[in-house]
Design a protein around this nucleic acid. Structure first.
Lengths: 347, 347
DNA sequence: CTGTTAGCGCCTTCAA
DNA sequence: TTGAAGGCGCTAACAG
């Protein structure tokens, strides 16, 4: 049984070198596993001695020190504003699956204030899931300083960083039009902050589709909430408790749609029967729940996102130009808002 | 309008020094804002020059380099195994609130494999939310190497690190006994993995309480699930669809209880009326939902946890001995499992 | 009050 | 096949 370092001090490469009776360079070669591919060869007995010494001391290379020398951190940062949103969990899941085999560690930044953090902390690549108007300049500055960015946004251009975009507008339009096949009294459930930001296009799809169908928009059919799950639940309850309640709800995010389903069931309404509910985003949670959530969303979005991010993180030399990646949207018809024919329509 | 660094290279302290016409040391003094408190003073005009130069270049100190020198990263790592659990979100929220004013950045590690990551990445303090049996040695080794740890566990001792413990046993017992006032047919909803780990005590409280009350335990009243929300929902549906369905469900986590409530409502059962549901953990989500979730849990747990972690992260000099912190549990009677008198009991 | 020097732990030449 | 030396960006101790 090795005694390990009971000194309370972290073992350094130098201690390993001393214990093995070699130089620090040799240790570095052996432990970073690069001998033979152009790097100097090290004799097997020496390599063994080094490995044994490292093991005995419990040596692990110091990433901070390595980063300062190599410029690589083997880390990607995910800046996620709404951690409770299933969308964020899907991002995390996909990135983690793709990162682990590459020896890259994903670190999650829950704070919305990524500007300050990314200025001082480095990562091989950074994913940012929401950019407010006044942060556009910060993004450009970060990119100019060499930070590798992948940004999720519907309007930004690729000014030194990748932009992942999934044009919500047409997709959302499809969602509302799907409801229009069976309904006239359609409500919209959307966070209050979304009026100005990217969510705005999701709401606009609702307005436009209704207008095209010749249905006047009712103010009391717009359920604004504060962005929380509880808020979405409350707003849904209000909508579904009205005397002339809507027969369908278009929710601008999947998690809001999930809350709406729970609220409807609480009120004793059959989801997909008495009331249809459709979401936006195509998250796994929606697919797995019961009744399964009808939704619109990009296909394979999360995997593609993860691939892009890790390609940027790993491929330090490859210089694909930063680009805008556009993901097409599909309509996923499931139980919460099934197909409606003239026979089954609710008006 | 400053041109900023359009070189694609991150500005260093040396560039700032050159531009300002001073030495790097002076820059360091000025920008780390420590002049006067024992450190050398710097004249105001010089300080201004330095600040202007830094601003012009968009300079931000490199945390990795600083860390290697000072041993401090201004970072805490939260290793959270089940990010979708509201419990994790509460931890994040509390830590973030406490960390920001101290200039400390919380980084979240979603990967369950913290052993590898913490070996190479450093932080001023680390919170670990789950320790498997074979990881105990790793914990000790990490602590011996100087990693500051705060571990959430019910059985570990403080072997070089803090242990936060919230003896679930007695609290869970209270939960089941609360149900026993009004019920005889009580089911238990618990993740399958919990048989061996800390969750085991939560299940044992159920067994013991039933035994003490002279009620035989029914195998078909134990709803095992895979740890996911969807799994908990499915298991709840099965329980509540039985011919002689239970009139109460004791869920070993709040998030499972939430799923059970949704399942019950889906089946048209009145929660708190036809069926009582109680959770474990006292998360905010449970408190805010409708019907509000009855539960047991420690009081002020998350804030206390955050305070401890940040005290460890900030107080580099203070050497309180690592200790076991024990948080007492309370019973929170809310709508999903109200008080039952002999008049309102369901048997 | 300011600049010089010496490292932190690691990796990468270059010479032996 | 190995070792010595230099430097990454930064700060701490010591000169001036």
């Amino acid at each position: 049984m090795a005694k390990a370092s009971s000194t309370g001090v972290r073992p350094t490469i130098r201690m390993v070198a001393e214990l093995a009776g070699v130089s620090t360079a040799t240790v570095s070669y052996v432990l970073s596993g690069r001998r033979g591919d152009g790097g100097p060869g090290v004799s097997d007995p020496t390599a063994e001695k080094v490995k044994a010494a490292a093991e005995r001391l419990g040596y692990r290379p110091n990433q901070a020190a390595r980063a300062i020398r190599t410029g690589r951190t083997n880390t990607v940062i995910l800046s996620l504003t709404m951690l409770s949103d299933p969308w964020s969990l899907s991002v995390i899941e996909a990135v983690q699956k793709a990162a682990v085999p590459l020896g890259i560690t994903p670190m999650i930044l829950g704070d919305a204030d990524w500007v300050k953090v990314l200025g001082t902390h480095n990562a091989d690549a950074v994913f940012v899931d929401a950019v407010r108007g006044n942060q556009r300049d910060d993004l450009r500055k970060l990119a100019a300083r060499g930070t590798t960015l992948v940004v999720f946004d519907e309007v930004l251009d690729a000014e030194g960083f990748d932009v992942i975009r999934s044009i919500a507008g047409p997709g959302c339009r499809m969602a509302v039009e799907h409801l229009l096949h069976g309904h006239r009294r359609i409500a919209c459930l959307t966070p209050a902050t979304a009026s100005g930001t990217s969510g705005g296009s999701r709401y606009r799809a609702y307005s436009d589709a209704l207008a095209s169908a010749g249905i006047p928009e009712r103010q009391d059919y717009v359920g604004l909430f504060d962005g929380t799950t509880a808020g979405a639940y409350a707003a849904s309850t209000r909508l579904l408790s009205m005397p002339d309640r809507p027969t369908a709800i278009y929710a601008t995010t999947d998690y809001a749609a999930v809350s709406a389903i729970n609220a409807a069931q609480r009120l004793g309404l059959g989801v997909g029967v008495d009331v249809d509910i459709i979401g936006v985003g195509n998250t796994v949670e929606g697919e797995r729940m019961s009744p399964s959530l009808s939704t619109v969303g990009p296909v394979d979005f999360f995997d593609k996102l993860a691939r892009r991010l890790l390609k940027r993180a790993a491929g330090h030399g490859d210089h694909d130009e930063p680009a805008v990646l556009d993901f097409p949207w599909h309509l996923f018809v499931r139980e919460s808002a099934p197909h409606r024919s003239t026979a089954t329509r609710l008006y």
